[in-house]
Design a protein around this nucleic acid. Structure first.
Lengths: 334, 334
DNA sequence: TTGAAAGCGGTACCAG
DNA sequence: CTGGTACCGCTTTCAA
């Protein structure tokens, strides 16, 4: 079922059909109706490939995400998609599962699709890929990786500021021995959280200890906690690279009969919805995902109000969210 | 950067470039190398739209999901995508957020993209849409909605069998008053869970009570629980339409000081990963998502081992997963 | 082993 | 207000 079939059925030219298809006003109402009827009767819908080919561009935005399992990324994507949809853009996502190869493949596929722009919320972005992207003629926006360039916008979280708030809060409560559960992969953003933790604890004079989770899942938090508890460090507070990990920590502590927050305080990072429903609810650092998604979209969509954002670096501030998983440490009577 | 640019640079015709692009063996090795060099130098990557247009089909499978926030759907999608990728298919997802309009739009977009097949894991599929789909010339597979047709495969969960196991288990434990927290939307699959609950409890002679959550999120479980506790029904076990809801229930009960499972048992449905990390871990019904994804893929991919599945209805059995959130009810000494 | 040329299904410019 | 037609970039006969 093609344009010409509709044209024949309606007794007009393909041009006219194309016009009504695209809402061109220069079509007599009676003709328009006739064409629309024909389209319906034939159950016609346009071939998007032909259209994009002819137009030379595709009103599609590509979104790259490391991991859709983490609600953090999903939240960003959802908001981004909503904005895109609202402006008539289609959206195509690809989860790379932290594999540079998969990332490369997804990227090629998107470029092949001639997307109008690419938003990359991935942690495994390699320099070579960033290079490759900077030669491309479409706008690109990175989150937490990459660098600013001609058409490249960069959004970054102010980890320093966020982590400081959290550590200061805990210190204020009286904590002096804090552990950090880090990610197993050497990914820029998560590495940054770890190093920031180390810096801040050093500055504030609290003793710090880092242990690596060996999975990005809940279970990573669990096993890391086991390891931590038998390490001899005896932290009074455990900070986690993200909320998912913290859920695992909470679970393991509960199984071991350790009370949170009475005996050990726990904090997450990201502020995913689940954190409000854990037992106890989770103190965490909020990363404003809606705002990040909005900034990203603005950087990709031309003719957007404050589209000026393109080609810049934007630093996003984080916010400490206090809930029930943190409290003063037990008084050391020993 | 187009085919012809590469051809010029390499001093061959576009045909030849196309050949090396598609791995055609009838190209002299030296020529092939020259062309490949040219492609690299020019950072060429093919325009997928032109390709699909010329080929008349697109090695892309469309996946429709109600809601990516629910790990249940995400798990299915992840597996499906992996299989597709393994067979050289691209995949495009669309979350409909339970809106028939959004579903319709996504469907059109996919058909416009001339996908090679569509897998619909959506609850809001309307009869009219199913009709529309049956006229399309590509294979389609539905999960929990729709009906079998020429190129239409149907996968269904055996809710009857799953729900019966759960209710029997609880009855065996001694429970006689069970409440069910249902979904707010009138969606076929979730409705089915509700009615099945009612049937089974009736058959087993246990008194039943249904309360509607007013959100599909964790919070829906929380508020429904509040409502339930003040309803006077006093259930000894609460069954939930899914695990997400159950997490909210667990939270609310904990806040109210009700011990799970000592005072009230709680069960979920779906068996998402999170259920292993709740406090207490969640008894639930496992729906074999991997298998569902595999069946779906088989139904769409031609030249697949047991591709015979197409145009059939497949019923998938569920499995009771016993964890720590269910136990005998408190002995009524009153 | 290579190339010329006819589409694929739309879009958009140029006439009328 | 409507139609003719030259592309868009790649695939695929058909010939050489």
């Amino acid at each position: 079922m093609k344009l010409i079939d509709v044209a024949n059925k309606a007794g007009v030219s393909v041009t006219t059909v194309s016009r009504v298809l695209n809402g061109d006003q220069n079509v007599k109402t009676s003709t328009r109706t006739r064409v629309q009827r024909a389209m319906q009767d034939l159950k016609y819908y346009p071939n998007l490939h032909a259209r994009s080919l002819a137009r030379g561009q595709s009103k599609t935005l590509g979104v790259l995400v490391s991991n859709l399992d983490n609600p953090f990324f999903l939240d960003i994507y959802r908001r981004f998609e909503a904005l895109a949809l609202g402006s008539g853009y289609d959206t195509v996502v690809s989860a790379t599962h932290y594999h540079p190869d998969q990332l490369r493949a997804s990227l090629r596929s998107m470029l092949g699709r001639r997307v109008a722009g690419i938003a990359a919320f991935v942690s495994e972005m390699e320099p070579s890929l960033i290079d490759e992207l900077s030669h491309v003629e479409i706008p690109v926006v990175f989150y937490d990786v990459g660098r600013v360039g001609k058409r490249i916008t960069n959004i970054r979280s102010n980890y320093q500021q966020g982590m400081r708030q959290l550590v200061e809060h805990l210190r204020m409560l009286g904590h002096r021995r804090m552990a950090f559960i880090a990610y197993p992969l050497a990914l820029q953003p998560t590495e940054e959280r770890r190093t920031t933790f180390l810096e801040v604890t050093e500055q504030l004079g609290v003793s710090a200890h880092v242990v690596l989770a060996h999975s990005e899942e809940f279970s990573g938090g669990r096993s890391a906690t086991r390891e931590l508890l038998s390490s001899g460090f005896e932290p009074t507070a455990i900070l986690c690279v993200n909320d998912i990990t913290a859920v695992g920590v909470l679970k393991e502590l509960h199984e071991q009969g350790v009370l949170v927050p009475q005996q050990i305080s726990v904090a997450g990072f990201d502020n995913i919805l689940l954190g409000q429903f854990t037992i106890p609810s989770l103190t965490t650092i909020h990363i404003p995902r809606d705002r990040i998604a909005e900034l990203a979209f603005q950087a990709l969509a031309p003719s957007w109000p404050n589209h000026a954002k393109q080609g810049q670096e934007v630093l996003v501030d984080l916010e400490l969210i206090l809930r029930k998983s943190t409290a003063p440490p037990p008084t050391e009577s020993a």
